[in-house]
Simulated scan of single mutants.
Amino acid sequence: MPDTTATKTLAVVEVTRSRPDRPEYHAYVDTLNSAVVAEGERLGYSVLRVGAADVGTEKLLELTRDADALVVMGGEDIDPRFYGAASGYRGEGQHFDVADEAQIALVRRALERQTPLLGICRGLQIINVALGGTLLQDLGEQTSHTNVGVPVESTMTRHEVDLRAASRLAGHLGTTRVVVQSAHHQAADRIGDDLVVVGIAADGTPEALEHSSAPIYGVQWHPEDPGAPVGQLALVLSALTSSVAARVAA
């Protein structure tokens, strides 16, 4: 198969490139984000890496205007005002509302332009909120989706996700049941317009979303985590690569 990504740009959009007040957390997030950058380069993309909070909405849209594919990465909780909810919930931390606003605008433009987009963890939640959905603000102390009260590098938990057999993600992953690494205390609640839940955990938590017609995907887990099954990140990114190839061929 010819390499259709050789001259293509992948924009990896983070919350921020700097967290001087939380160096341990930032170092861990940077490890995850760097893994996506490295895999994108391995797949032949020219990778643009940008922090949404660092540049704001107008500049983010300008920088990514010509990107062939987009990845919205994990990070902090989305400010509740963007999905019509209140602050003060269990586990609430720092918000980056500038990043929220910019990434929501990015998703909406991707939908309008049919730009292939993948959301990872927070990125899935950004997709859902951008398209009119809401979030369950906290999964509770006994959640199986994150380890609570441990050092940041130990927050990931391992569990299974069942994928809808007819979903595009199942096709790319080659299975309807995947073992994943996750670290999230929130989840999609009301599902956004034209999004479909295509992956669920054993407790019923939505773990993967796809748009019904646009090349927009979200996974609530972290295929880029060092503890994820070998090759899983490449398979998840293949959903973008195939969409890029389809646009080239059209």
Score class of each variant (00 low, 15 high):
246 A>Q: 14
173 L>P: 13
118 L>T: 13
102 A>V: 06
2 P>R: 05
119 G>F: 08
227 G>N: 12
138 D>T: 10
122 R>H: 13
216 I>D: 04
5 T>S: 15
155 T>C: 12
161 V>A: 08
114 Q>N: 15
122 R>C: 10
231 G>V: 09
64 T>H: 13
38 A>E: 10
206 P>F: 05
38 A>V: 06
223 P>W: 04
164 R>F: 04
241 T>Q: 14
49 R>P: 07
8 K>C: 11
153 E>N: 12
205 T>C: 10
237 L>F: 08
225 D>I: 06
227 G>A: 13
18 S>K: 14
200 I>S: 15
39 E>T: 05
206 P>R: 05
86 A>G: 10
14 E>H: 06
75 G>K: 11
2 P>A: 12
228 A>C: 03
121 C>F: 09
235 L>S: 15
221 W>D: 08
203 D>G: 12
6 A>T: 13
211 H>E: 00
241 T>H: 01
230 V>M: 03
15 V>G: 11
12 V>D: 05
79 D>Y: 09
211 H>L: 12
246 A>S: 14
208 A>G: 01
127 I>G: 10
203 D>N: 01
143 T>I: 09
104 I>E: 09
231 G>A: 03
43 L>A: 08
235 L>D: 14
16 T>R: 00
206 P>H: 01
208 A>F: 05
53 A>F: 04
135 L>F: 11
41 E>D: 00
198 V>D: 00
16 T>D: 02
164 R>S: 14
92 E>A: 14
61 L>M: 12
19 R>D: 10
157 T>H: 11
28 Y>S: 11
77 D>Q: 02
142 Q>T: 12
27 A>M: 02
2 P>Y: 02
181 Q>T: 07
104 I>D: 10
55 V>Y: 01
201 A>C: 00
214 A>I: 13
35 A>S: 15
41 E>A: 14
18 S>F: 13
63 L>C: 03
230 V>C: 06
76 E>G: 12
61 L>K: 07
14 E>Y: 03
214 A>Y: 06
227 G>Q: 07
88 G>V: 01
92 E>S: 11
163 L>P: 12
143 T>R: 11
132 G>R: 06
116 P>Q: 01
150 V>I: 03
76 E>R: 09
122 R>F: 15
133 G>P: 01
33 N>P: 00
237 L>A: 11
218 G>R: 12
247 R>K: 15
5 T>L: 15
232 Q>N: 10
76 E>H: 13
81 R>K: 14
198 V>N: 01
106 L>H: 09
34 S>A: 15
120 I>P: 08
46 S>N: 04
79 D>H: 15
7 T>C: 01
47 V>A: 05
203 D>Q: 05
10 L>D: 02
172 H>I: 08
186 Q>C: 07
